[in-house]
């Protein structure tokens, strides 16, 4: 049957909701399991009045259409990538080296009180979207079918063809490292790595590389150029129309879930690197100093490119302190 996302009233006169949540991850993925746990908790704490059904594996469409549907309210919740076509300020989700450890990412990105989170929240509200949380899906590195030399040396020549998604952010990141970039559809990435259409790819953490590409990889560099950020969002009209008590339960539950998932993801990335190492894949773990050098390189060479993408205030904050000011 069909859900009542607009809210119905039960026998006790309480508002009840049956909501649909779309995610790109398959049903057995760690993040889907975490999101499911959060949904179960919400159902329990609202006395069964807010039920959320998860549609995994992009069943309801990819993030470009689901995001639009969240704006329109034809899907209620989403856990997927952000769509930046409606507001280019949301590109801050893809800016490299805002954080270079899970600790920093938790404090400056996942934390609902952070400047970063509040900026995302504010801008998505203009699109009729309420931001409930930011899940970290991995510390992005470089997975490659050949060994990459001098990955963390910003000045070394890197004659490798690296696949990245066709957004400015990733393209600038690839350039920042000194790679030649190529845009390839994600579904063709595996065969491209295998046949040599590209040498490596940028945009996934150790865990993703282990899960999907371990058979074609010879190298993984834990560059941590960006923490893949998956937003958990809800139609704002729907959220605003809910009793305040439910709003608090939903927001708090996802805030808690995103925080604890960040810890879990850090463990998964670490485990994945150990497993890949055991398979004979070369794992490159940069030193603290190398991360700092790279971050500095990106701050001076890459961040200024965001001038036309971001509003002045956000851009100034980026240049001044990497979006780390007190909200």
């Amino acid at each position: 049957g069909c859900g009542n996302s607009s809210g119905a009233t039960n026998a006790d006169g309480e508002q009840t909701y049956e909501l649909r949540l779309a995610t790109l991850y398959p049903a057995d993925h760690e993040m889907t399991i975490a999101v499911q746990a959060a949904c179960d908790k919400i159902e329990e704490e609202t006395g069964g009045n807010v039920k959320i059904q998860i549609y995994p594996s992009d069943q309801l469409g990819d993030y470009t259409s689901v995001y639009e549907e969240i704006m329109k309210g034809t899907i209620d919740l989403m856990v997927s990538g952000v769509l930046t076509t409606y507001d280019s300020n949301l590109e801050i989700m893809n800016i490299p080296y805002l954080a270079s450890s899970y600790e920093e990412a938790k404090e400056y990105i996942v934390n609902p009180d952070s400047y970063f989170f509040q900026t995302v929240l504010e801008h998505q509200r203009n699109l009729n979207i309420e931001t409930l949380g930011i899940y970290l899906a991995g510390a992005q590195g470089v997975g490659a079918a050949k060994v990459i030399d001098n990955l963390m040396d910003p000045n070394a020549a890197k004659p490798y063809l690296i696949r990245c998604p066709s957004t400015d952010g990733y393209l600038w990141t690839a350039e920042g490292f000194g790679f030649n970039s190529v845009t390839i559809n994600y579904s063709e990435l595996y065969s491209s790595l295998q046949t040599g259409v590209c040498d490596g790819w940028l945009g996934g953490g150790a865990y993703v590389n282990y899960l999907s590409f371990r058979d074609v990889l010879k190298y993984f560099g834990d560059a941590r150029c960006s923490f893949e950020s998956i937003i958990c969002i809800m139609t704002k009209d729907l959220y605003d129309g809910m009793p305040a008590e439910y709003q608090t339960i939903i927001s708090d539950t996802f805030a808690e879930s995103t925080m604890s998932f960040a810890d879990q993801m850090e463990g998964l990335d670490e485990q994945a690197m150990q497993d890949m190492e055991a398979m004979g894949i070369e794992i490159y773990r940069p030193t603290e100093e190398e991360y700092e050098t790279m971050r500095e390189h990106f701050r001076t060479n890459v961040w200024p490119k965001y001038e036309n993408t971001l509003d002045t205030e956000i851009f100034n904050s980026l240049i001044a302190n990497g979006l780390r000011e007190a909200a």
Binding site: G1, T64, S65, E69, K72, G73, T74
Partner: peptide, 21 residues
């Protein structure tokens, strides 16, 4: 009959067609 808001229809059509594959 199922009470859907029809505005998802064109979004779905567009996003399905917009594929480099």
């Amino acid at each position: 009959t199922l009470g859907f808001d029809a505005s998802f229809v064109f979004t779905t059509v567009y996003s399905k067609m917009n594929s480099s594959v």
